[in-house]
Design a protein around this nucleic acid. Structure first.
Lengths: 330, 330
DNA sequence: GTAGTCTTTGCACACGTTTGCAAGAAAGGT
DNA sequence: ACCTTTCTTGCAAACGTGTGCAAAGACTAC
């Protein structure tokens, strides 16, 4: 009575074999006549194939594991949504594994393998080299989202962080800023490092620099301290999430953000456009990054021997009110 | 060579039958001796049971389907994270189904059933009555998160929205506000409706009221219009996400938020504590709501015949700077 | 030492699907 | 009419695991 209806029941009602109904639903060839009979019977009974049972034999689960933490940074929920949409469009779905802050994500990857995921997307997370090798061995492709890991041989999709950092530097210099400072993203991550290096290379000497570790509170403290000690007239902050904290801190120190001190972020999350912050920032195109990630990953699912891809996606500088804009800036 | 190692290989290496290794890993009884042999062999080979194959025979997939949209409201990523943590602690994981704005979530539920999910959590989404019945018939429990649906007979976990709305009203009246307005959450949803009704009942006559539909831009427009037309000295906004928009709009109309006009939100998302908004708001305890949701859902998984539960969780009013605070308010 | 009880173990079947294989049916060419 | 080719279809064997059943083994108690 209860429980799901099975392919055998459909077969019985349609007067054909289980193979026939299987072929109809898996897209293999079948005569018009049987196809009609099968579909009719299936509709009557409300039959839908059991994805899990199917996966057992095909070796494809149509499940993609996503490991993610740091969800309070709006960029990641946004990315999650885009990834999910792109995957759903291809008939895949996301199994979420949240990484408790400090813990190694390696244990999570083990769990993913238990679920026979077809692929893994690791967002803002580093994966141990042995684990990477293990996935490789198991034939399960991994794509790093918004983080690089050179030695790993894993595919990765990021924005053009070096270029972006440099672009911000050019913007600030063109604006006539002479006392430039930087609160970087976590330098232990490629994303933070690349932005910082690109910025440094094009900005010239800095009056202050510190590692904000992608942490909002830390960035706020650093910004306040910098303001008191070094009196920068511009601060590049490694992502928007920290930049909001920096702006709050600067304001409570009495600094006029956008006039006395320019603040530029990175990501262009939704809140950057909100009136209270009006943050000039370098956009990471979340949708295009998500699409590239999915495309790369699914290609790897098809052919695991295809080489690792490293994709960088460029984004524009979005000019708003938190930083002085140079005369005649395009 | 590649591919996963199977229980048969472990059995062979340990010199026992497949049943033995199955029993060891599924927690059934086994002698100390065989358990040791099996674990040794499994460790050597790197064996881990295939969850999908297991689910085929046990009828339990240890997958929970989550349908969610509206992820730009920070409350939901936060909830997602809490739900995921609570479920992971119990050995379950979340399969994500994002609901494209307008589309009926019913199609998504169908897809969930294909994955043999053990249960469904629907966040901020309404489920068609027939679908609910279908899940019931399939023995798959559904819990609504942060939304109620009286007729459906589904379990639901919300905050105490009526009480909360009333609490906000008391707070504003105690603060001596005489021209109170309201921008409600979407009145088509229980969450929006309950808050609005609780507020109305305790606030007395309002100088203005409109449905903000949980949409930030719409709330901003409404707030600006209200300010111009009705000159309220207090506005209760149906959730924080809209409240931020309202504050931005009020400020750009020249209103001094917190002095000329008080704004109170609902949710207490992270950004409410940020300096730029400093929003007084009624907290929805996301973690406790998530835990209650998981507890309810898993109980239902154990025993599907248990009756539907309706849980309301109270949250405190968090007093910050966006609204005038009454003399001697506790 | 023997009967009885409790624990451990392997066999074989089940879960719901896909798919190689071979046989049957239909179609097409002479 | 007959042979060949192409489609269609059912049978049966997988995929990797859990579990009822009965046999075997380990104890206990007399």
């Amino acid at each position: 009575m209860s429980g799901r209806v099975t392919s055998a029941e459909v077969a019985a009602r349609a007067g054909v074999s289980r193979s026939a109904v299987s072929r109809v639903f898996s897209g293999a060839s079948a005569s018009k006549a049987t196809e009609r009979k099968v579909r009719k019977a299936a509709a009557d009974l409300g039959y839908r194939p059991n994805v899990l049972a199917r996966s057992l034999i095909t070796g494809r689960s149509r499940i993609i594991g996503l490991v993610v933490s740091y969800l309070d940074n709006q960029f990641y929920p946004d990315a999650l949504e885009r990834l999910s949409e792109a995957l759903q469009a291809e008939g895949y779905h996301i199994l979420v594994f949240t990484a408790p802050e400090a813990e190694e994500p390696d244990a999570l990857v083990e769990q993913m393998l238990d679920y026979q995921v077809d692929g893994i997307i690791a967002a803002s997370v580093t994966i141990g080299g042995d684990l990477a090798a293990r996935c490789q061995a198991a034939g399960i492709p991994v794509v790093l989202f918004n983080r690089g890991q050179d030695a790993s041989g894993l595919s990765q999709v990021t924005s053009a962080n070096r270029t972006g950092g440099a672009e911000v530097a050019r913007f600030l210099r063109a604006g006539g800023h002479g006392r430039i400072a930087q609160i970087t993203g976590w330098l232990g991550a490629s994303t933070g490092r690349d932005r910082a290096e690109g910025f440094r290379a094009a900005a010239g000497p800095l009056v202050a620099e510190a590692d904000g570790m992608f942490d909002r509170d830390r960035a706020a403290e650093l910004a306040a301290a910098m303001w008191r000690d070094a009196r920068p007239d511009a601060i590049f902050v490694g992502n928007d999430h920290m930049a909001f904290g920096a702006i709050d801190a600067l304001r409570s120190e009495g600094a006029a953000v956008g006039r006395e001190v320019s603040v530029v972020g990175y990501d262009d999350v939704a809140a950057a456009a909100w009136g209270a912050y009006d943050l000039t920032t370098l956009r990471q195109p979340a949708r295009r990054m998500a699409e590239a990630t999915v495309e790369t990953l699914l290609a790897l699912v098809e052919d695991p021997d295809r080489g690792a891809a490293r994709i960088e996606i460029e984004g524009p500088l979005v000019v708003r009110g938190s930083a002085r804009v140079p005369e005649g800036w395009a």
